[in-house]
Amino acid sequence: MNTLQKNSFFNRFFSEHSFKGGVNRERCGLAFYKKFYDPKSEVFFKLKSRYLYKAKDGDILFFLLCIPGGGSFYFWFILVLNSLVALFSEEDFTWYIVYLIPIYSFFVVNLLGLFYDRMPIRGAYFDRIEQKVSFTWKIGNAEELEELEELEELEELEELDEFGNPIFDWDDIECIIKNELGALGLMKAFIEIRHKDLERYPNAKLTINASGDTSKPVQCFLEWESIVRHMEQDKPLPDTPEYELYRELDPITKSFDESNGRPKGFWTQFSLEQQREIEEQIFQEALKFDWSEGKVQPEITRPWEVWTPDPKRPPKPRGMFTMIMLQLVFCYPE
């Protein structure tokens, strides 16, 4: 196990973002619950310049969200099949399925949106402003809490963030690289973000599968550097698609962008395909980088001088009609 430093050596940050709805966050389509309820996801959006969220991979609850969409797809399949039968035979068309689909989709889209906001996915919030880290699950059991109360140390665990999660100081958080033998006999690399005092807080740790090959644990370094860079509050947010819609919400970033002559909405001009090509380019550079030397290379602060949007591959924001059709067919809440 190697403990990683809280420093950025490679200094190349890039995380793709699909601007599927463009810059409009007011769209709801069939998801009428958004008009009456401000979900946690929307609260997080408003604080995205402040918070970075990292989730544990392969949470089974996420896949449970696919079940309602599968049911909707089944109804559409029956509708198409019933239409073909009615068209090429003398059997009557079953009209009730036409009314059932939109009613089912409307109900599920709104219910799913509310359920998703309350779904307990394991992850960690990194608070750039307060320099805190919070985990989305209970850190100690009842016995530990009683012991802490006796020691008059319960106050630290009772401190919560906006989302009701226990908070720890960023200075008390560390990251290590762990190796594990995979299913096919291949070694996999993970990063474990945890509290320094594991004896006191054994549950304060989050494992992220960042790399599939320990001979090239570069993705682990890149993942940790992205977190460290986010927490450096004396610097503007990294200039990547992930932060494009939130840069003006951070005063330091907004001031830096104005003085740096940054084009407004720069990354919104890039298609997701081109973003992935840039991400692969940076990853190939990271493979050649000497991580053991400890040499810090300069950050790319003017990406518009390095990359230009391809006019032949413009981004394709998701239109209102497309969004509603996805809600009808797959019960996708957006």
Rank of each mutant, 00 (worst) to 15 (best):
M1F: 12
T3R: 14
Q5V: 00
K6N: 13
N7P: 00
F14Q: 05
H17M: 10
S18N: 15
F19H: 03
N24I: 05
N24W: 03
R25H: 12
R27Q: 14
G29F: 01
F32Y: 11
Y33N: 10
K34H: 05
Y37H: 15
E42H: 12
E42T: 14
R50N: 04
R50Y: 00
Y51H: 10
D57R: 11
L61S: 10
L64V: 06
L64M: 09
C66D: 14
I67H: 00
P68C: 04
G70F: 08
S72F: 02
F75L: 15
W76H: 09
W76Y: 12
I78G: 00
N82P: 03
S83C: 07
V85Y: 01
D92F: 06
D92W: 08
F93V: 07
V98M: 05
L100H: 02
Y104S: 03
S105R: 02
F106L: 09
V109T: 07
L112H: 02
G113V: 01
L114K: 10
F115I: 15
F115M: 13
R122C: 06
G123A: 06
E130F: 06
T136Q: 11
T136P: 00
I139K: 04
G140S: 15
E146N: 08
E149R: 13
E152R: 11
E156S: 13
E158S: 10
N165M: 06
F168G: 04
D169R: 13
D171E: 15
I177K: 12
K178R: 11
A183N: 08
L186C: 05
A189C: 15
I191M: 01
I191L: 04
D197N: 15
E199N: 14
P202H: 13
P202V: 09
I208F: 11
T214M: 09
Q219T: 02
F221M: 15
E223W: 02
W224I: 05
E225Q: 07
V228C: 09
R229C: 01
H230M: 07
D239Q: 08
D239S: 10
P241V: 07
L245R: 07
Y246C: 11
D250A: 03
T253M: 00
T253E: 03
N260M: 12
S271D: 04
E273M: 04
E273P: 00
E280M: 11
I282Y: 08
Q284I: 08
E285S: 03
F289S: 03
K295C: 10
V296R: 14
E299K: 10
I300A: 01
T301G: 04
T301N: 13
T301V: 15
R302S: 11
R302A: 14
E305F: 08
T308A: 15
T308W: 03
P311K: 04
P314Q: 09
K316V: 10
G319V: 01
G319C: 01
I324V: 15
I324N: 03
L326K: 09
F330T: 10
Y332I: 10
P333W: 02
